[in-house]
Design a protein around this nucleic acid. Sequence first.
DNA 1: AAATAGGTATTCAAATTTGAATAGGTACAA
DNA 2: TTGTACCTATTCAAATTTGAATACCTATTT
Lengths: 192, 192
Amino acid sequence: MQALSIRLSILGLLMEEDMHPYEIRSRMKDRFLDFQGRFKIGSLYYAVDQLAKQSYIEAVETIQSDTRPDKTVYRITDKGRAYFHKLLLDRFKEEDIPFHPMYIALVFAGKGDREKIAAILRDRVREAEHHVNYCYQVYCEHKGTVPRSVLHLMAGRYEHAKTELAWLVRLLEDTEAGRLNEVAFSPLLDED
Amino acid sequence: MQALSIRLSILGLLMEEDMHPYEIRSRMKDRFLDFQGRFKIGSLYYAVDQLAKQSYIEAVETIQSDTRPDKTVYRITDKGRAYFHKLLLDRFKEEDIPFHPMYIALVFAGKGDREKIAAILRDRVREAEHHVNYCYQVYCEHKGTVPRSVLHLMAGRYEHAKTELAWLVRLLEDTEAGRLNEVAFSPLLDED
DNA sequence: AAATAGGTATTCAAATTTGAATAGGTACAA
DNA sequence: TTGTACCTATTCAAATTTGAATACCTATTT
């Protein structure tokens, strides 16, 4: 359930202050809880409704306005606080199974047009380079101002971005050399 | 849409041979299209129905048996073959946005119990070590027998597993040392 | 011989996610 | 001042995913 991550985010933010869903959303952006718009706003409203139905949070106030939609402010309950602690440990337990969207494509790469694939990969390498720089910059900008746990998050993103870039570069080389369909082995990893 | 990856897998396999959904599923397992059961079988049947409705594939035969459920065998159409090529390039274009389930937890780590988190992380480090070994083994077992594009896939999994392990080890060290909530900076990356 | 686990094959209700629609506000440039 | 782009705030139908149910077969263990 991706839902559990949204739930944890909502409860974590409501532990700090009562809020309405739209504000939760904007706090999520500030607090590195919503990388690249991973959560759609609709899912957030859905998750808030579910949490309220199950009494992990409760509506405390409805702010009315003639010019804007009503806002419903929520507060976390004691039951919600206990649930937060359970979800927090659950997230630490959950295995990360990274699954690159390209892995599926690679299985069928032999059926595709070698030149078109190479052209796309050149763009991807360029993007990956930018992404590495971006992650490093985020890390640098925040060191000394965020808790170390959050810095680990940023360092992790940077390291993974570097790994991704190195992988893409090797893949592009082989694609350009027309080696993607060869079965005969020649070293690909340093370890060989 | 995660759906596009299932669709590409189904079409790719049907390009090679006519099949019924259950067999597509088992071929997916052999062909590295279904890492750690990422796709649930229900999603596969749904995707097959959709592809059929949109004439990318068509039912060619229903095999009846008194002892087992009927099997519907599907075949890819010309429209489906064109769609396959589009999806293939789309997969190469799609950005990989790895999002570790733990990233959310790290943001709220300060609210959790340091000892419980450390205990979980020790398990995660052990699992990650096994995962690195496993990925390396899969790579070694297949080099020389699978197309190089598939070997890249395996090499990528191995490299990311190593990155993950190194990250977890550093995170565990800081957790055990009680440094997770410190804001003052001390080097975390080699680059510093 | 009976129990247990696992493979074959599909279906369906319920939970969740997405994508677009709604509707006014504000800020800036042309 | 008119366009345009983005911010505030929520809702909802439609698409997708999940999880469990069904039902029978085969192989292995007790």
